[in-house]
Design a protein around this nucleic acid. Structure first.
Length: 177
DNA sequence: CGGTCGATTCGCT
DNA sequence: GCGAATCGACCGT
C-alpha cells in the first residue's frame, strides 16, 4: 500500500480500508468499519482551523493520528488528503491472529467483542499516543479483499450525525454497536 | 489558569 | 437505557 492511497478524499479512503488487514507486533485483524472526517465537518477536530493538535491533518498524508477520548480511550486515525484536513477513524475489525494477547489486554473472552469499537481496537492492539505522528507503514496494512459495503450516519458524536460518513461491511459480526 | 466538554466503554437498573 | 470514569485540548478571563 502506497502513500498515494491516502492522498485522496477521506470518504474514498474510508471505503477502501474495509477488507484491509492491519498488523502490529504479531496481532492481525481485518478492518470492518471506518469513519471519514474532513475540515468541512462540524464533528472533526480539524473543524475550526489548524491547531497544534490538528496540524497533522493539515500537513500530512498517511500519518497516524491517535488521540485520547474521554481521558480513557485511544482512537486510531490515518490522515488522508491534507487539502481538506481529512482523516479516517478505524472503528472495528475482525480478529485474525494473536487472539490470546487481545483477550488478555481486553480482559474478555468473546472474540466478537475484542475489536468492535475504536477504543476497544486500540486497547487490544496496544495502540496509544506513542504511535501518534508515525507513518501508516507502522500498521502493516495489506489489502486482502474488497468487500461489499454500506454507509450510515455516524455513531457516538454530537454533531452532524446524519452525514453518511460511516462505512461498514454489512452483516459482519464485528461491528460496533 | 479554571471551566467545559467529548469521534467511548462498561456496569448497573 | 443511563451515568460515571478521567484526561487534555481549547477558550475565555
Amino acid at each position: 500500500m502506497e502513500e498515494e492511497f491516502f492522498r485522496r478524499d477521506s470518504k474514498a479512503v474510508a471505503k477502501d480500508l474495509l477488507g484491509t488487514r492491519i498488523r502490529i507486533e504479531g496481532l492481525e485483524a481485518e478492518i470492518t468499519e471506518t469513519e471519514a472526517y474532513m475540515e468541512d465537518d462540524p464533528a472533526s477536530h480539524a473543524h475550526g482551523g489548524k491547531t497544534e493538535r490538528t496540524r497533522i491533518m493539515y500537513e500530512s498524508t498517511g500519518r497516524i493520528y491517535v488521540y485520547l477520548c474521554y481521558g480513557i480511550h485511544h482512537l486510531l486515525n490515518i490522515t488522508t488528503n491534507p487539502d481538506s484536513a481529512g482523516c479516517v477513524l478505524i472503528r472495528a475489525a475482525k480478529p485474525l491472529e494473536g487472539l490470546e494477547k487481545m483477550r488478555q489486554r481486553r480482559d474478555i473472552e468473546d472474540e466478537t467483542n475484542l475489536l468492535n469499537g475504536p477504543g476497544k481496537l486500540c486497547e487490544a492492539f496496544g495502540v496509544d499516543k506513542d504511535l501518534n505522528g508515525s507513518s501508516y507503514r507502522s500498521l502493516g496494512l495489506e489489502k486482502s479483499r474488497s468487500p461489499k459495503y454500506e454507509t450510515s450516519g455516524r455513531i457516538g458524536i454530537s454533531k452532524a450525525q446524519d452525514r453518511q460518513l460511516r462505512f461498514y461491511v454489512p452483516g459482519s459480526k464485528y461491528l460496533s454497536r
